[in-house]
C-alpha cells in the first residue's frame, strides 16, 4: 500500500499562464465580427477558451463560430444558475433541517457576467481540434433568448432541456415542451432554489464517516 502515496510526482509546481496564440486569434476574430455584442473572454493557455457575448448576439456568435472559426460540431447547450443554493450544501449539514443561510454573494465563473442565469454553449472544430465555450447573460426579469435551431438543428432538444430545467424561454423555438419530466411536474429542477424534498425529510448523515487511508492520521 506504500505506492498509494508517491513522492516522485510533484504537483505543486506553479504553472505559468502560457500565451495561446490560436485561441487569442479565435477570440479576436469573434470580437471583430460581433462588435458591440462581444463582452469579454478568458483563456487558459493550451487548454480552453471562454467567450461571453450579449444576449442579442447569441445566434450571431454561433453563426460566426460556425462560419468563421469552422466550429461545425455542435457539442451542447445548457445554462448555469449562479445563485448560491439557499439550502446550503445539504451534505455538509450536521443538524437535521438547517435553516436557509443568508445568500452568499453571487460569483460568476470564467469570462465574468452580471446575472443569475447564464446560457452556455460549447462548439468544437474538428479540423482545428479546438473548442470554445460561449456564454450569455440573461436578465432576471426576462429569461428568454433566441433559438439556435437555424444555425445548429441539433440545438432543438438541448433547448427543450434548458427550458424544462431552468425555465428559460427560447424565442422562435417551434416545439418547446417537456422532454424528460411528466407534464404535471411543477418547478425547474436545476434552479438552485429548487429543493430536493427527500433530503429535507431525511437528512444526509454528514461527512463524519470519511474513511482514511491506512496509516493516515485524523487531523
Amino acid at each position: 500500500m506504500t505506492q498509494l502515496s508517491s513522492t516522485d510526482t510533484d504537483t505543486s509546481a506553479e504553472a505559468e499562464p502560457q500565451p495561446d496564440e490560436r485561441r487569442e486569434a479565435w477570440a479576436a476574430r469573434l470580437a471583430d465580427s460581433l462588435g458591440n455584442g462581444y463582452a469579454e473572454h478568458h483563456i487558459i493557455g493550451g487548454s480552453d477558451l471562454w467567450v461571453r457575448v450579449a444576449r442579442d448576439s447569441w445566434t450571431d456568435a454561433a453563426t460566426a463560430a460556425r462560419d468563421l472559426l469552422g466550429c461545425q460540431f455542435f457539442d451542447w447547450l445548457s445554462a448555469i444558475d449562479w445563485l448560491p443554493s439557499p439550502f446550503g450544501r445539504d451534505m455538509d449539514a450536521q443538524e437535521d433541517n438547517p435553516e436557509p443561510k443568508a445568500a452568499d454573494p453571487m460569483e460568476q465563473g470564467h469570462a465574468g457576467g452580471e446575472t443569475r442565469f447564464q446560457m452556455v454553449m460549447r462548439l468544437y472544430s474538428i479540423t482545428e481540434h479546438m473548442g470554445l465555450t460561449i456564454k450569455a447573460d440573461l436578465p432576471d426579469g426576462d429569461l428568454s433568448i433566441d433559438t439556435l435551431i437555424g444555425v445548429y438543428p441539433g440545438a432543438d432538444w438541448h433547448e427543450r432541456e434548458a427550458w424544462e430545467m431552468f425555465g428559460i424561454h427560447f424565442n422562435n423555438h417551434p416545439d418547446l415542451r417537456n422532454i424528460y419530466l411528466p407534464g404535471e411536474f411543477e418547478g425547474n429542477p436545476l434552479r438552485k432554489d429548487f429543493p430536493l424534498l427527500a433530503r429535507r425529510v431525511k437528512p444526509w448523515p454528514g461527512i463524519v464517516d470519511v474513511e482514511l487511508f491506512p496509516g493516515e492520521e485524523d487531523s
Binding site: 419530466l181 411536474f185 429548487f194 430536493l196 424534498l197 427527500a198
Partner: peptide, 13 residues
C-alpha cells in the same frame, strides 16, 4: 428503494 437516487426529484423510491 430508489437506490443511489434516493434523493432525486424524478425517481420513485
Amino acid at each position: 428503494c430508489g437506490g443511489p437516487y434516493w434523493d432525486s426529484y424524478s425517481v420513485t423510491k
